[in-house]
């Protein structure tokens, strides 16, 4: 499998949100706007690429019974590094995303890729897989954020095109579930059927 294929696979055929249905908490919790969704996606991508690389490096000399705890320690450290860096470079985004940044540790996508891919592939391939999966995740979060922002606050990427309020429900909790549900329907209808 080529490197490019490895990257695009995570974006479409094995999109973490729409196909694997993983990492739902940040998907729903942070997508109030397109920018927030994208920020969360990129933060996760950062952890995903590095954790995939580190895991594929160290997998060879870790006894298999303490595999999972070791990966968790690696991922948690990477997340903490991310937290510290975000406080320096993007403090306002860090504040908006809040609790969901430390929660990347328990995002099933990260541990899932470490366990299912990185521990039996080369560093370079694992990095590609991390990029692909991460970008797929970022893409779906950005799209969901955009939909909620357009419907809920009448703006796109912070650019306001509608005076006054949008449909408030889409900014609040119920809208997150409903928007994602309908996006999944669209994905099933137009993308999934084409692939198969």
């Amino acid at each position: 499998m080529g490197k490019l294929k490895m990257i695009t696979r995570g974006i479409i055929q094995e999109n973490p949100t729409f196909v694997l249905i993983l990492g739902m908490c940040p998907t729903l919790g942070t997508t109030i706007s397109a920018i927030n969704g994208m920020g969360m996606g990129l933060a996760t991508t950062f952890v995903l690429i590095l954790s995939n690389m580190v895991v594929s490096l160290i997998a060879g000399w870790i006894p298999s019974k303490v595999r999972i705890p070791s990966y968790i320690v690696v991922i948690a450290s990477l997340v903490t590094i991310l937290q510290l860096l975000m406080q320096v470079f993007v403090p306002s985004l860090y504040e908006t995303l809040g609790l969901f940044i430390p929660l990347i540790v328990v995002n099933c996508i990260v541990l899932g890729r470490a366990e299912a891919f990185a521990n039996r592939n080369t560093v370079l391939n694992s990095a590609c897989d991390g990029i692909g999966t991460g970008l797929g995740f970022t893409l779906s979060l950005t799209v969901l954020g955009l939909v909620r922002e357009v419907l809920g606050s009448g703006s796109a990427f912070g650019w306001k095109f509608l005076e006054g309020d949008g449909i408030l429900a889409f900014v609040l909790a119920p809208g997150a579930f409903i928007a994602l549900g309908y996006l999944m329907v669209l994905y099933n209808k137009f993308v999934k059927s084409k692939i198969q």
């Binding site: 997998a59 870790i62 320690v73 450290s77 903490t80």
Partner: peptide
């Protein structure tokens, strides 16, 4: 591929990883 687990290498491995990671975090934090 992964090594066979024995009590000694499991403890050693976890200890080592935790040690390296906390060290790294301390540096980044500083």
């Amino acid at each position: 591929m992964a090594k066979v687990s024995s009590f000694r290498n499991m403890v050693l491995c976890l200890f080592l990883i935790c040690f390296v990671c906390s060290g790294l975090l301390a540096v980044v934090n500083a």
